[in-house]
Every structure is written in C-alpha cells, then in structure tokens.
C-alpha cells in the first residue's frame, strides 16, 4: 500500500461516511481528504491566499462527485485540467448519474475514469475496493511536477 492520499469531493455526508467505511472495510488505509463542495476541492488543490500547498502534496487520485453546490464537478474537473500542476492528476468521476451526456462530457474534459455509484451498499463497497486497489496500488501515479 503506498501512501498516496485520496481527495474525495462529495457533498452528501451519508455518502462520505459510506465511502470511508467501504474503503476501510477493504483495508485501504490511505489518508482520505474530504472536500464538501467544489470550492473546497479547488482550495485544497491550488491553495487559497492563506495557505499554499507544496506540489508534492497532490493526492494520488481524486474521487469526484458531479452534483456539488457552488461549483459543480465538471467545472472542478475543468479547473484541474487547466492548471499545469494538476493537468495529469488522476480523476475518477464517482457519481449517481448515468446520463450519457455526463459520461461523454466527463471524458471530454479529461477524466480518467467514470464510475456510477451503486445503490446496493454491498456492491458499493466492492466498487470502492476495486477503485482503491486499482488507483492506489496498480496504477502508476504521475510523478510530481518539478519546478520552483
């Protein structure tokens, strides 16, 4: 298990609790940062005036919900992909929506993966496990961008 962080962008606290539980139940003990809306997610990744994050602090993967208050998931994705720092950051869209146009738009904007959250919790945990195993273990994280 590597020590990459997971950035979970999710506004529904139930879903957050269930996701954390699901990850834990499969022994995925990486640190999970939770952003409850798009603004928080962006602040975390790019920092606000108050705190500047160092590049090496980027998460290994971002689990991104689409329906978020303030700025929605697609906009966050756009922002992520438009900054040099986070251009190649792995983003998995994890959402309830099954709409074709969301899938298309997500991939168009540069998401690495699109997963529909199942209602059945048992299935949900299985999905979480698979996601975690894949993105944290199997997947090679892009190296942090060097620079000043």
């Amino acid at each position: 298990m590597n020590h990459g962080k997971i950035l979970l962008v999710e506004d529904n606290p139930d879903d957050v609790a269930l996701t954390l539980r699901a990850l834990k139940s499969h022994n995925i003990t990486n640190e999970v940062i939770v952003a409850q809306d798009g603004v928080q997610a962006i602040d975390y990744l790019f920092g606000s005036k108050e705190e500047q994050r160092a590049p090496t602090d980027l998460p290994a993967v971002v689990l991104l919900d689409l329906k978020l208050p303030k700025i929605n998931g697609m906009e966050v994705l756009q922002r992520i992909r438009s900054e040099e720092r986070t251009k190649v950051l792995p983003v998995v869209i994890l959402t309830s929506s099954d709409e074709e146009r969301d899938v298309i738009e997500g991939y168009k904007l540069g998401a690495n993966s699109y997963v529909r959250k199942p209602v059945d919790f048992v299935e949900f945990t299985k999905a979480a496990q698979q996601l975690g195993l894949y993105w944290l273990l199997m997947n090679r994280v892009p190296p942090a961008p060097r620079g000043p």
Partner: peptide, 14 residues
C-alpha cells in the same frame, strides 16, 4: 437520476 438515488444509497448503506 442523481437526486433520487442518493437517499436510496444512504438507506441501503446504513
């Protein structure tokens, strides 16, 4: 497709 499923997930999950 989005909003109705979320509560169901909570019900089932918890």
């Amino acid at each position: 497709s989005h909003d109705l499923r979320a509560p169901l997930r909570s019900i089932d999950g918890f």
